[in-house]
Every structure is written in structure tokens, then in C-alpha cells.
Simulated scan of single mutants.
Amino acid sequence: MKAMIFSAGKGERMRPLTLTTPKPLLVAGGKPLIVWHLERLAAAGFSEVVINTSWLGDQFAPALGDGDRWGMQLHFISEGAVPLETGGGILNALPLLGDAPFLVVNGDVWTDVDFSALPQQPQGDAHLVLVDNPVQHPRGDFILRGDGTVSDAGDAPRLTYAGIGVYRPSILDGWREVIGATEGASANPPRFGLAPLMRHAMAHGRVTGQYHAGRWTDVGTPERLAALDAALA
């Protein structure tokens, strides 16, 4: 299974740090955030990783090389000056990801998730990792049912999507109808988020998930980056 690390965002909440450094290359515990992912992916047996880039994208290849130091191959795919968002980013990367299920990881989270413990063949279109709701996101995102399916409907307590999931390319089937007529969807290449497609698949019972009780941090602000850096020291 191949993996993709989302790395194209502008990191506006992390400014001024991201004025000169893309967020996945910011350092915590002596390593760039994205290097923590690459090390864990390599340990889990992944040999090919796609990294989408946009904001300050020319910094990634010099910083990471070709992946040889981790025993893997890195593929950098530029989205141009304007990021394609999560759904558009995956669509743009599909020629590199191929037809099999693939792992997606947000480049701006830190976690001790064991990537080898995720299913290589999800039952439906996606399998998500969910975590306890952080202070900055108390409501959470989705409901993890007792049968392992994930839902966006109902009043049950919600968990937070960890920015980690295994997806089939079929998650993008009919994306234009799901997204609707938006400015981004009509762009070339198209720009659109993954969340509407996830919710559409959930409504049809095609998303499963698992709860991660270990460590996870959404490194969304300079303060949270500093706290993570101190915790990893």
C-alpha cells in the first residue's frame, strides 16, 4: 500500500513560522513533523510515499531527498500556487497512488499511531482513525458505531478525525455530483475538500473506523507546536 502525506496547505494559523517554512517541515523534538511520519511509515513497511506540495513547495525535496535514508521512494507532486484542498489533492495524485487502497496522513499532525495496524483493504470506501476530542475541537467530528461504521448522523458522542485514513479511489466516484457547482470544482485542476465525499460515503454505510487511544496532536498553532516540542524533548 502506498501513502500520501498532505503537505500543500499554507499554514496560515501557524504564522509567522510558516511565512518562511511550510508547516510539515516545522521542527518538534528535533525533527520536522513530516519526518516523524516518514519514519513511522518506513517502520510499518511502506515503500512509496506521495507528498503533495504548494506553499513553499520547493523546500521539500532539498529537505527530504528521495527517501533513500528511510528505505522508501518519495514522489513530490506540485499543485501550483493555489492548493487543491484535500479532495482535489487526492484526485490530482491518483496517477501516482494507483488503483489500490492508499493511506492518507495530514502533514500537520503528530501521532504514535501504528500504521501497520490499519487495514490494507477497507470494507467500504474509507477507514478512519478517530481520537478523543482536543480542547480546541470539543464537539468532535464523527460517531463511531458499535459495529465499526462511522456516521455523521445522530446525537451520540463524537470523536475527532485524526487526519489519518485508508481510502479506496472509489471515494472520489461521482465527486462532481456530490460537491456540486462550486468555483473550485470547475477549476483546472479542480479544488475541493474531501469532507463532503466522506459524509456522502458515511450516509451509504461505506466508512468504517477505529479509535486510537494513544498520542495525537493537531499542530495547528505556534503554541501547540511549542508544547509538542517540549513534550518530545
Rank of each mutant, 00 (worst) to 15 (best):
L97A: 11
A8K: 05
R158C: 08
T18F: 01
L228I: 00
G180L: 06
V129M: 09
P122Q: 09
D58S: 14
L232Q: 05
D141Y: 04
I179K: 08
A195V: 02
G174E: 02
T86V: 15
E48R: 15
N92L: 04
T86K: 15
W36I: 04
G11T: 10
V27Y: 02
P169C: 11
P157F: 06
S116G: 15
A61Y: 04
I5L: 14
R176S: 13
I164C: 05
I90C: 13
L19I: 04
E12C: 08
F46T: 09
V104M: 14
T149Q: 13
T20K: 13
E39R: 14
I171D: 00
E12Y: 09
W175Y: 13
G71W: 10
L130Q: 01
G80Q: 09
P62L: 07
G11A: 06
T182A: 02
N52A: 13
L232G: 01
A203Y: 00
L194S: 00
A227W: 01
Q73R: 15
G29A: 12
V135P: 07
M198T: 13
W36V: 06
G174V: 01
G89E: 01
E12R: 10
G154K: 11
D229W: 03
I90R: 11
T160L: 08
D125F: 07
P16N: 08
L130S: 03
L33Y: 01
N92I: 02
V135K: 12
I90Y: 10
K10D: 10
T18W: 00
D99K: 13
P95I: 06
N188D: 15
A3K: 11
V82K: 09
G193W: 09
H127E: 12
V150K: 13
T149G: 14
R40G: 14
I171F: 01
A28F: 01
D132C: 12
A156Y: 03
R206K: 14
A63R: 14
Y167N: 10
G193H: 13
F115Q: 03
A126I: 03
G165Y: 03
L232T: 06
R215D: 12
A185D: 03
E85G: 02
A185S: 07
I179N: 10
R158M: 10
M202F: 00
V166K: 11
I90L: 15
G107H: 04
L17E: 00
V50Q: 04
R15A: 15
V166A: 11
E12M: 09
P122N: 12
T18I: 03
L128S: 07
S47I: 04
Y161N: 09
V113A: 12
L74E: 04
G124W: 02
G154V: 11
G163H: 03
L91M: 10
P122G: 06
A195C: 03
A187I: 02
L74W: 07
I143N: 09
P83K: 08
R40D: 14
A93D: 01
N52P: 14
V219W: 00
I51K: 07
D229F: 07
G148R: 13
D66T: 14
L225M: 01
H75K: 09
T221R: 00
T18E: 02
W36P: 03
A93P: 01
D229T: 05
Q73H: 12
